[in-house]
């Protein structure tokens, strides 16, 4: 199966399975209301639904456009079903890329992203189930005041090592990433919504590579940094 055939299968299966799960998700509140004959007043709840959509929507273009080269379509279909795209699925993918030495936007990278994200999804689903089953014995650990800072800072701690590993991949990464970090930091100081900070930084990152790695070498015949 070549890259094109595999991608075609991924889209067909990803779209159809996502749609089935969407229908099941929507069916849950409908079934609840039908069983108990307890329908909500839609005039009252629509602002709540809109609030949730508006909270999520700014992230969609940034995540899909920005993460597509790294995660590929398959891992994105998987990740959108279980959520936590930035906090869990993206680091799982980049960690795998770094460990195996894969380049973004390649067939190998997109294929391995499916395996890494799938494994990550399994872990989340299984741990949540175990959390539900063991809710009583787990409470002293989960609510321990001593361990609280560790749990609430798990994701920043996860990204620290990941960013170090990515930046130190080579001279090029070191030189290209640092100005981008400064740019993102300054952009964040403007108070702009985080979703737009992400989208703009990703676009600027793509432009940086486009100019320094593609346009200039194409015109001059010389590579700036190897």
């Amino acid at each position: 199966m070549d890259k094109k055939q595999f991608e075609k299968w991924v889209h067909r299966f990803g779209q159809s399975s996502s749609f089935v799960l969407l229908l099941l998700m929507v069916a849950f509140p409908i079934t609840v209301s039908a069983v108990y004959n307890q329908w909500p007043n839609f005039g009252q709840i629509w602002p709540g639904i809109l609030t949730v959509i508006l909270m999520l929507a700014p992230w969609w273009p940034g995540e899909t456009i920005g993460y597509m080269p790294t995660m590929g379509p398959g891992a994105l279909y998987q990740s959108y079903i279980t959520g936590n795209v930035t906090a869990l699925r993206m680091p799982a993918t980049i960690g795998t890329m770094n460990a195996i030495g894969l380049e973004p936007n390649t067939d190998g990278c997109h294929t391995m992203a499916i395996i890494a994200c799938g494994a990550s999804n399994f872990v989340t689903v299984i741990l949540l189930f175990l959390g539900l089953l063991l809710s009583v014995p787990l409470q002293p650990v989960l609510y321990s005041e001593t361990l609280q800072p560790a749990f609430s800072n798990a994701i920043p701690a996860l990204f620290g090592g990941l960013i170090a590993q990515s930046i130190l991949k080579g001279k090029k990464q070191l030189l290209y990433y640092i100005p981008l970090v400064i740019f993102a930091y300054l952009l964040n100081l403007t108070g702009l919504n985080g979703a737009y900070v992400m989208l703009i930084t990703v676009v600027v990152g793509a432009l940086e590579y486009f100019v320094l790695d593609f346009l200039i070498p194409k015109k001059t015949g010389k590579t700036l940094v190897k």
Binding site: G66, P104, P156, A184, T201, V202, Y209
Partner: peptide
């Protein structure tokens, strides 16, 4: 061009993560 844009998007994502999960 595609590989360059891919690497650029990844760099942008990492730069955003450095700020969002640490520097800010």
């Amino acid at each position: 061009l595609v590989l360059g844009i891919g690497a650029g998007c990844l760099a942008g994502t990492m730069a955003y993560a450095a700020v969002n999960f640490g520097l800010k």
